[in-house]
Amino acid sequence: MKNKALGILPAALAFVVLSSNAQAHGVVAHTVEGGVGVRVEYDSGHPVAHAEARIFAPEMPEEPYQSGFTDVKGFFMFFPSKPGEWRIEIDDGMGHRAVKSILMDEESVLQDAVTVPSRNRWKETVMGLLVIIALFSILAFWMSRTRINEKA
């Protein structure tokens, strides 16, 4: 039995290690500042709104680094991850297309815009476990009382 009991230790240890390295599964949005952007407009001066935009990184000319759409005022923003020539392609889907290259040097490459501190989930987890214990204790108490009442 002692050997069997020892078998639980590696499993428990693995569970704790994996849990301690846990990443957030919920999705949280943070405000950031900076970035590089373009504003696209027709030669009439009107913005190219909701046009498809694709960003190509310096050493990946074929595979888009990022894709999306310009906003209603023709803006499109991105965060370059390394120095070099970044290419932006804008296509409004109606035959109009613009290509713009932006040279980024070492200094202008943005570092992490914000450092999000990893949340310590231990307190939250313990709180949740206590709630579970409390809920099932109440349920057990309620069920035993119901049974006593039925017998009476």
Binding site: A22, R121, I132, I133, F136, A140
Partner: peptide
């Protein structure tokens, strides 16, 4: 079944932290 159900609820709750 209540202790077992409570235990499994706790396991399910914390299993989401194992990525």
């Amino acid at each position: 079944d209540i202790p077992k159900t409570a235990m499994m609820t706790a396991v399910f709750f914390t299993a989401s932290l194992v990525q």
